[in-house]
Simulated assay, not measured.
Amino acid sequence: MKDRNETIIEAIIKMADALCPDSLALIGVYGSVATGDEHEKSDLDLLILIHDEKGQVLADGFIIDDVDIGYDLYCTSWDMLEKDAQCDHAHLSKLLDSKIVYCKDKSALERLDEIRRKAAELLASDRRYEKADNAYSDAKKLLAEVYLAQSLSKARSYAGAAIELIENAVMLHNGQYFRKGTKRALDELKQLGLPFDLETSILAVIQAETVEQIRARLTEVFVLTEGYLQVPKKKELPSAENLRGTYEEIYSNWKNKMAEAAGRDDVYSSFMNLLSLQWMFYEIAECIAVDGFEIMDKFNPKNLEENVDVFHQALNKYLAEYEKVGIRPKHFESITEFAEDYNKEISEEI
Rank of each mutant, 00 (worst) to 15 (best):
S201Y: 06
D97Y: 05
Q313L: 15
N168R: 06
K14W: 05
D52F: 02
A204G: 07
A34L: 08
N134Y: 02
E121L: 14
K298D: 05
A208I: 10
E345A: 15
Y177P: 00
F196N: 11
N253F: 11
G181A: 08
L237W: 01
L203K: 03
G326L: 10
S32I: 09
L274W: 00
A11E: 11
F271N: 13
D60W: 03
A120N: 11
L315T: 10
M15Y: 02
L19A: 15
E38T: 05
E349N: 10
Y251T: 02
W279H: 13
M272G: 00
S201F: 01
I13G: 06
E121D: 03
I350F: 14
F293W: 15
E260M: 14
L122R: 09
L44E: 02
K99V: 12
V211I: 14
V205D: 02
K257Q: 14
L122G: 13
S157T: 15
G175N: 04
D79I: 13
Y177F: 09
E260T: 11
L165I: 02
A259S: 08
G326Y: 06
I13D: 05
S157H: 15
C103T: 10
D138L: 15
D105S: 15
K154M: 13
A34F: 09
Q213R: 01
D84T: 01
A289Y: 11
S276W: 04
S252N: 07
T336V: 11
V205I: 08
P238F: 07
G175V: 07
G31P: 08
A132W: 04
I63F: 15
S269F: 03
S23V: 11
W254S: 03
E321S: 06
I100G: 06
S93Y: 02
Q230K: 03
M171A: 13
D66G: 12
L96M: 09
A18Q: 12
A262I: 00
I48D: 04
G292Y: 00
E321F: 00
S32P: 00
R217S: 12
E10F: 13
Q150F: 01
Y282T: 05
I115V: 15
D65F: 13
L189I: 13
L237P: 07
E283H: 11
L58K: 09
T246R: 12
L194W: 06
P301N: 04
D197S: 13
T336F: 00
E209P: 06
D3E: 15
G70N: 07
